[in-house]
């Protein structure tokens, strides 16, 4: 589907401050179901959520706007379960990760379907052809990895999260995320070995 769904309302012209006090007020407003609060939420944390989704799904993913909407709706619907307003950003990150995981699993289940398999890529015109190819290859390999390895690996490698942050985002213990990262790295290297596009990158850092 090359149409881009965007249901998230346009951000309102509100203060973009992200300090904890603002988040506490924001969470309170969200719990009171104030529509303006939803817009503020997207305005304040939308960029962060989009970044998480981009790391996990790839910038080429044409359904990212759909997923972003799912994340926003989940946050809106589940805000009542957030007890510590200061943890809003981390909580949102978890929602984004879990939503992306659901999307990946859903696609995996239906990957053989023509209707899901022919979704065109969103090109990366700002990158050279070599990097575009590499990006596609990386995410193609990601698609072959277990989702619980892929996501922490993507966050670690592409977003530069440390172990603690990766574990928190994925809702895993530190030991679990460490173990999965090691496995993910091995798996990625194995799958990328001999890959026409990725081999030069992995060997020399560039094609």
């Amino acid at each position: 589907m090359d149409r881009i769904l965007r249901i998230v309302p346009a951000p309102a012209p509100v203060e973009a401050s992200t300090d904890a006090a603002d988040d506490e007020r924001l969470v309170a407003a969200l719990k009171q179901r104030q529509p303006q609060a939803f817009e503020t939420l997207i305005h304040r944390h939308g960029a962060h959520l989009r970044r998480v989704l981009t790391r996990v799904l790839g910038a080429h993913d044409t359904e990212q706007a759909d997923v972003m909407q799912e994340v926003a709706m989940s946050a809106w619907q589940g805000i009542g379960s957030l007890t510590d307003a200061r943890a809003l950003k981390a909580w949102l990150t978890q929602i984004a990760v879990f939503t992306a995981r659901g999307v990946i699993r859903r696609r995996r289940r239906g990957r053989w379907l023509a209707l899901l398999g022919e979704v065109p890529d969103r090109p990366l015109p700002w990158a050279g052809p070599d990097l575009q190819e590499a990006a596609r290859a990386v995410y193609a390999i990601f698609d072959r990895m277990p989702v619980d390895e892929r996501i922490p690996f993507a966050l670690r490698m592409l977003d530069g999260l440390d172990l603690e942050a990766t574990a928190q985002a994925c809702g895993m213990s530190l030991a679990t995320v460490r173990r999965r990262l090691v496995r993910a790295e091995r798996r990625f290297q194995k799958l990328a070995r001999g890959h026409e596009v990725l081999e030069p990158w992995l060997r020399e850092g560039q094609p």
Binding site: R51, T54, R55, G58, A59, L124, W126, A127, L131, A134, A135, V138, R156, M157, L158, D159, G160, D162, L163, R178, L181, V182, A184, E185, F188, Q189, A192, L198, W201, L202, R203, E204, G205, Q206
Partner: peptide, 19 residues
């Protein structure tokens, strides 16, 4: 922590996504 295989690849991919 695992060391990134092909750091150049990850760095450039990250930068392209950032852009």
């Amino acid at each position: 922590e695992p060391r990134p295989p092909g750091e150049g690849l990850w760095r450039r991919l990250t930068e392209a996504q950032n852009v």
